[in-house]
Measured scan of single mutants.
Amino acid sequence: MLYRITVRNADGEKLEIVVEMSEDEVRALAEELRKAGYEVRVEPIPEGEEP
């Protein structure tokens, strides 16, 4: 499935990426980023919607 991941650092800089991963993989990635001090938001992209 496609997911949009938005990551912000302490300075407020934002990075937005689209990935194709399983829900478990995305959850693990988000958890690791949060542990590293980043603010993370994950949104699933519905099938048929443009990323």
Rank of each mutant, 00 (worst) to 15 (best):
V19Y: 05
L33H: 02
E31A: 04
P51A: 14
I5F: 03
Y38I: 03
E20W: 13
R8N: 04
R34W: 08
E16N: 13
G37T: 01
M1T: 11
E49A: 13
P46N: 06
D24S: 13
E32W: 03
M21E: 01
Y38T: 02
R27T: 10
R8V: 12
A36H: 06
V26G: 01
V42E: 01
P51W: 01
V26W: 02
A10S: 05
L15I: 04
V19M: 07
V40A: 03
T6F: 08
E32T: 14
L2Q: 12
R4T: 04
M21Q: 02
R8L: 07
R27M: 08
V42Q: 01
E13L: 13
E47K: 10
R27C: 07
V19C: 02
I5D: 00
T6S: 09
V42I: 13
N9G: 08
V40L: 02
K14T: 09
E50S: 09
E47G: 14
I5E: 00
V7H: 04
E23D: 08
V40E: 00
R41Y: 07
E16Y: 15
V7L: 14
K14Y: 07
E39C: 03
V42L: 06
R34V: 07
I17P: 00
E20Y: 09
Y3C: 00
E32C: 08
Y3P: 00
N9T: 04
K14P: 12
R4D: 01
R41Q: 10
E43S: 07
T6L: 05
M21T: 07
E23L: 13
P51F: 01
V42D: 00
I17F: 09
G37H: 06
I17M: 14
G48E: 13
A10D: 03
R34I: 05
V42N: 00
V19E: 02
P46W: 14
K14V: 11
R4W: 04
V7W: 14
P46L: 15
M1Q: 11
A36I: 08
V7K: 03
V19Q: 07
A36V: 08
L33W: 13
A28R: 11
R8W: 11
E43L: 11
S22P: 14
V18A: 04
V18Y: 04
A28S: 10
Y3D: 00
L2H: 10
M1N: 14
R41H: 13
G12P: 01
V7N: 00
M21H: 02
E39P: 02
P44V: 12
S22T: 14
E47R: 10
E50G: 09
I17Q: 09
K35N: 05
Y3K: 01
E16Q: 06
R34M: 08
V18L: 13
I17K: 08
D11E: 06
V7R: 03
R8H: 07
V26C: 09
Y38G: 01
G12I: 07
E13K: 15
T6P: 00
I17C: 02
E31K: 05
V42G: 00
E32G: 14
I5N: 00
L15R: 15
A10L: 14
E47T: 13
R27I: 11
E23P: 08
V40T: 02
E13G: 15
M1Y: 08
M21N: 03
A36F: 07
R34T: 11
R4H: 07
D11S: 15
R41K: 09
E20A: 05
G12F: 07
S22E: 05
M1S: 07
A28V: 09
E16G: 03
K35T: 06
I5C: 01
E16L: 10
R41G: 11
D24F: 12
L33A: 02
I5A: 00
L29P: 00
Y38L: 08
V42K: 00
V26T: 03
E32K: 15
R41W: 08
D11Y: 07
E43M: 05
A10N: 15
K35D: 02
A10P: 14
E25Q: 08
R8G: 08
E47M: 15
P51N: 11
V42H: 04
D11V: 13
A36T: 04
P51S: 13
P46D: 12
E31C: 02
E23Q: 07
E50H: 10
L15S: 14
G37P: 01
A36C: 08
L33I: 05
L2T: 12
E20H: 06
R8Y: 09
L33K: 02
E13F: 14
L2W: 09
I45K: 09
L15A: 07
V40Y: 02
E47S: 13
P51Q: 07
E13W: 14
E23M: 09
V19T: 08
L29I: 03
R27Y: 07
I5R: 00
I45C: 06
E47C: 06
E50I: 13
E23K: 10
A30T: 06
V18C: 05
V18I: 06
K35P: 00
E49P: 14
E50Y: 09
Y38S: 10
E31P: 00
E50W: 06
V42Y: 05
S22R: 13
R8F: 10
P46T: 14
E49V: 10
S22M: 09
I5L: 08
P46I: 12
I5H: 00
K35G: 04
G37M: 02
V42T: 04
E49F: 10
E39L: 05
M1G: 13
V18N: 05
E32N: 12
V26R: 01
R27W: 12
V7F: 15
V26A: 14
E25R: 04
Y38H: 13
I45E: 10
V19D: 01
E20F: 06
A36W: 03
T6G: 02
K14R: 10
E31M: 09
E43I: 13
I5Q: 00
G12R: 04
Y38E: 01
I5G: 00
D24R: 05
R4M: 08
E43T: 12
L15W: 11
G48Q: 15
T6M: 13
Y3M: 02
P46Y: 14
A10E: 01
L2I: 09
E50Q: 11
K14H: 08
P46H: 14
A30K: 04
L29H: 13
Y3H: 04
I17L: 10
E13C: 15
K14G: 04
E49Y: 12
A10V: 04
E49M: 07
A30S: 13
L33D: 00
G37V: 01
L15G: 08
I45M: 12
L33Y: 15
E16I: 08
E39D: 08
E43K: 07
E50R: 12
D11A: 13
L29C: 04
R8C: 07
A30M: 09
A10Y: 05
V18M: 10
G37E: 01
T6K: 06
V40F: 03
P44M: 12
M21I: 05
E49W: 11
G37R: 02
E20M: 06
E16P: 08
I17Y: 08
A10F: 04
I5P: 00
V19F: 03
R8A: 13
P44N: 09
E39T: 11
L33P: 00
D24K: 05
A28C: 02
V40R: 00
G37I: 00
E25M: 06
R4K: 14
Y3L: 02
E32A: 05
R34L: 08
Y38R: 04
N9S: 11
A36K: 14
L33C: 01
R4Y: 07
I45Q: 11
V7C: 02
R4A: 03
A10W: 04
E31L: 06
K35Y: 04
N9L: 05
A30D: 02
L29D: 00
V40Q: 00
M21L: 12
P46G: 08
L2K: 11
R41N: 05
L15E: 10
V42S: 02
M21P: 00
R27G: 11
P44E: 08
P51I: 10
A30H: 02
V42F: 08
L15F: 09
E31S: 06
S22G: 12
V40P: 02
D11C: 14
D11G: 10
E20D: 08
E20T: 08
L15H: 15
E50C: 03
Y38A: 13
E39W: 06
R41D: 07
A30F: 06
R8P: 01
R4Q: 07
V18G: 01
L33F: 15
V18E: 11
E32H: 03
P46A: 14
M1I: 12
A10I: 06
G48V: 15
E23Y: 07
E31G: 06
D24A: 08
K35L: 05
S22L: 15
V19K: 13
V19N: 02
G12A: 05
A28P: 02
P46V: 15
E31N: 12
Y3I: 03
Y3V: 03
R4G: 01
E39F: 04
V7M: 13
R27Q: 11
P44F: 11
G12N: 05
M21Y: 04
R27V: 11
E39N: 15
K35A: 05
G37W: 15
L2D: 02
P44D: 04
Y3T: 02
R8E: 08
P46K: 14
K35M: 10
G48A: 10
G12L: 04
G37D: 02
E32F: 07
E49R: 01
P51M: 04
M21F: 09
E23V: 14
I17S: 14
L2A: 14
E49G: 08
A10M: 11
A28K: 05
R34S: 11
E39Q: 12
I45T: 06
E49K: 03
N9H: 03
D24L: 14
S22H: 08
V18D: 03
V40C: 01
N9V: 06
Y38D: 03
R34Q: 07
T6I: 14
M1D: 07
G12C: 15
A30P: 00
E16R: 10
G37S: 03
P44K: 10
D11F: 13
P44I: 10
L29G: 01
V26I: 05
G37Y: 15
A36D: 07
P44A: 12
R27N: 09
P44Y: 06
V18P: 01
E25I: 03
L2C: 15
L15Y: 13
L29F: 15
G48L: 14
I17E: 03
E49C: 02
L15M: 09
V18Q: 14
Y3W: 04
R34G: 07
R4I: 06
E32I: 11
L29W: 11
L15T: 12
I45D: 13
G37F: 13
T6V: 11
L2F: 10
I45H: 12
P51D: 11
V19W: 03
I45Y: 09
E50M: 10
E25H: 05
E25S: 06
E49H: 09
E16T: 06
L33E: 00
P51E: 09
V18K: 08
L2S: 12
R27P: 01
S22I: 15
I45A: 04
E25V: 03
V7G: 15
E25F: 03
R34D: 02
L15K: 15
A28W: 03
V19L: 10
M1W: 06
D24P: 14
